[in-house]
Simulated scan of single mutants.
Amino acid sequence: MLVLAIDTATPAITAGLVELTADAVRPRAARVTENARRHAELLMPGVLAACADAGAKLAEVDAVVTGVGPGPFTGLRVGMVTAAALGDALGVPVHGVGTLDAIAADVAAGEPLVVVTDARRREVYWAAYDGAGTLLDGPHVTAPAALVDRLPELGATAAAGPSAAATGLAVRSTAGPSPVGLVAVAAAALRAGAEPAPLEPLYLRRPDAVPPGQAKKVTTP
């Protein structure tokens, strides 16, 4: 099975093709560009470049996997909308997976782990995992200090993700999710041919943009 993987929940704009077999998740090609403000402009060129690198056509893709965050509102929705549009155009299923889960799958630390990414506004997104990569707590959005205060309770001994250094723990990786990590999280559902759940973004807080309020009435004397 040839799977297209996409994630735009972090400053890393990730696109890649992954070969999923009955017992393996094999990378075919990956394009990762670091740019926190150009997700919309760079994602599809990355998808097409990954296809060219893999010697495959988009029409050969059997499924799409996309990260659903948590992540900033604008960047996150670029990847999810693109994944949904490609799935519709190609007539293939689209599976959403947690971005932090994918980073944890990439690291495969074998030890209690927290995955931490930048949430802006002097906050971080984080989630805690056991040594097998199973989610224990989160995802949450908090100040870094609030996460550090919880580390003894969580029992984590290492950290991963672009903002891992904020924890003071041993850092296993500062990368965003890879195509292999994204597909690994969805592998069981893909192999089983399960119906994907509706794509639901993990914003964890309200977007900055809000509808304008009702205009004030102007009275005349």
Rank of each mutant, 00 (worst) to 15 (best):
A156M: 02
A156K: 01
A156C: 13
A156F: 01
T157D: 02
T157I: 03
A158N: 06
A158W: 01
A158T: 04
A159W: 00
A159I: 00
A159F: 00
A159H: 00
A160W: 01
A160G: 05
G161S: 13
G161Y: 14
G161C: 12
G161M: 13
G161K: 13
G161L: 13
P162K: 12
P162A: 15
P162R: 15
S163Q: 12
S163A: 15
S163N: 04
S163L: 13
S163F: 13
S163R: 14
A164M: 06
A164F: 02
A164K: 03
A164Y: 02
A165E: 15
A165F: 07
A165V: 15
A165T: 14
A166P: 01
T167S: 00
T167D: 00
T167I: 01
G168M: 10
G168S: 10
G168A: 09
G168H: 05
G168T: 11
L169V: 10
L169N: 03
L169S: 06
L169I: 11
A170V: 13
A170F: 02
A170T: 15
A170Y: 02
V171I: 11
V171P: 00
V171L: 00
V171E: 00
V171T: 01
R172T: 02
R172E: 03
R172W: 00
S173R: 03
S173M: 10
S173V: 06
S173I: 05
T174V: 14
T174E: 14
T174Y: 03
G176T: 09
G176R: 04
G176D: 06
G176V: 12
G176H: 05
P177I: 10
P177N: 11
P177E: 12
P177H: 08
P177V: 09
P177W: 06
P177Y: 04
S178T: 15
S178K: 04
S178D: 07
S178W: 07
S178H: 05
S178V: 08
P179I: 12
P179W: 11
P179Y: 11
P179Q: 10
G181A: 11
G181F: 05
G181E: 05
G181N: 06
G181D: 04
L182P: 11
V183M: 09
V183D: 11
V183F: 06
V183L: 08
V183N: 11
V183C: 11
A184N: 10
A184Q: 15
A184E: 14
V185K: 04
V185E: 04
V185T: 06
V185D: 03
V185P: 01
V185F: 10
A186L: 08
A186T: 10
A186I: 07
A186G: 08
A186N: 11
A186H: 13
A186Q: 12
A187S: 14
A187I: 12
A187K: 05
A188Y: 03
A188W: 04
A188G: 03
A189D: 09
A189N: 01
A189S: 08
